[in-house]
Nucleic acid binder design. Structure first.
Lengths: 129, 129, 129, 129
DNA sequence: GTGGTCTAGACCACG
DNA sequence: GTGGTCTAGACCACT
């Protein structure tokens, strides 16, 4: 179940993207499964259909799902589309963001490392369950 | 020296905020030191003065600097404003974001951990240099 | 100047994307130049601002332009983002489309090759002029 | 054998149309031969009968096949419907599309020419086999 | 003034 | 019923 938080820094469509991605990561939406329909999800979240459609467009362009005309969107096996340099850059940027967000909260390195480790393991557990 | 990146996802004022915070953390701007003037920094970075002013306003509201009338902005000893729960939540959210961003890039846990470790060490080095 | 054709098989936003791309290819929009504003272009083409915005979003995700907040969109030097396999696949798909479109028009191989060659040379000429 | 690709940009009915056209061009479906029945093909491809019916309607309107009542659809000798100008225009448009699609992929002219040549030769081989 | 987000509501192509 | 496109009009963040 995706939670839309109005006070969130992220726009609604991004929250939906992240929510779907998280469900894919945790295995709630396995490869081959169908995403909720645009209209269905928009009603459930009480947001406009265009907003959901925009989120879905982003998922499409990220290669996480594919569109089967008249049927809906389906989770696909992630293809490696980006080159090595680009992949590395994106990871680096994401880590920079993490550090920037946590810096000033006065965590030491071990605490941060521990949280990352713990989250990664949690995901792995959910996935293989 | 703060680097403004035009293609960055962050708005310019946020890049300035982050840049100043980083200089405080790494000790380049120790407690008690004076921030560059709004006009001076805006010329140096070739950005609008409003943009720098907005960044400084944010630093003030974050309690990282204080204004001494007629003199400028000065770095102050950070007070611990957030409670434990809030700190923990922010770290958790930041880590969730990291993991969400790296999904579909098909990195394994070790690669992510390694990048985080490496970035943290880099930061530590800068600080003690 | 971009031409919007209502009877075209392509949706309007795609015609805009193609039009901008063509202007980049032919050098009418060199690297570093600013795209027309969303509102300006939408008025000029008499289409909705959202339609232009959608086209611009696509150009952004294709890495052809970057957004400078509050200033507009600017053409950037194309980064090689895709891996070799993906690049090759896309070229192959594009050529398949060409052949599929021209087949049944009873052109022989030489005529097709000649048209491709001629178009490519034209572009090269415009670019270096 | 027609291949239906779920992730294809083309709708399924178009894939069927293209598939049939290709079989006619390569001689697998010579003039006078009978197309598979709507129901038979729909079962074979596991697609909706409406979808196959739509594809067949398109083939009829393109003048590639004719309907013999109670017997089915038969491949007929293609009449040249388009005039010279129209043919030339279509080829030109198709080539423009090819070039537009490959922009940003940073291929040089030779690479594009080579791919076109290679695809055309492949087709020729199939035809004469 | 610039792009980015969101809503409401309509229409179309596809299966 | 499914997604995809388009319009009209509003509001926000950034420079």
């Amino acid at each position: 179940m995706i939670q839309i938080v109005t006070g969130d820094a992220r726009p609604i469509f991004k929250q939906i993207v992240d929510g779907i991605r998280m469900q894919v990561i945790t295995g709630k939406l396995p490869v081959g499964s169908k995403l909720p329909s645009v209209r269905g999800l928009s009603m459930q979240l009480t947001v406009n259909t265009n907003t959901v459609a925009k989120a879905y467009t982003e998922l499409l362009s990220h290669g996480l799902v594919e569109s089967r005309k008249g049927l809906g969107l389906f989770v696909i096996k992630p293809k490696q589309i980006l080159n090595e340099q680009e992949r590395e850059d994106r990871l680096e940027t994401a880590v920079d963001t993490l550090i920037n967000e946590t810096i000033g909260l006065d965590f030491n390195n071990d605490e941060i490392m521990h949280m990352v480790q713990s989250k990664l393991v949690q995901l792995y557990d959910k996935k293989t369950k």
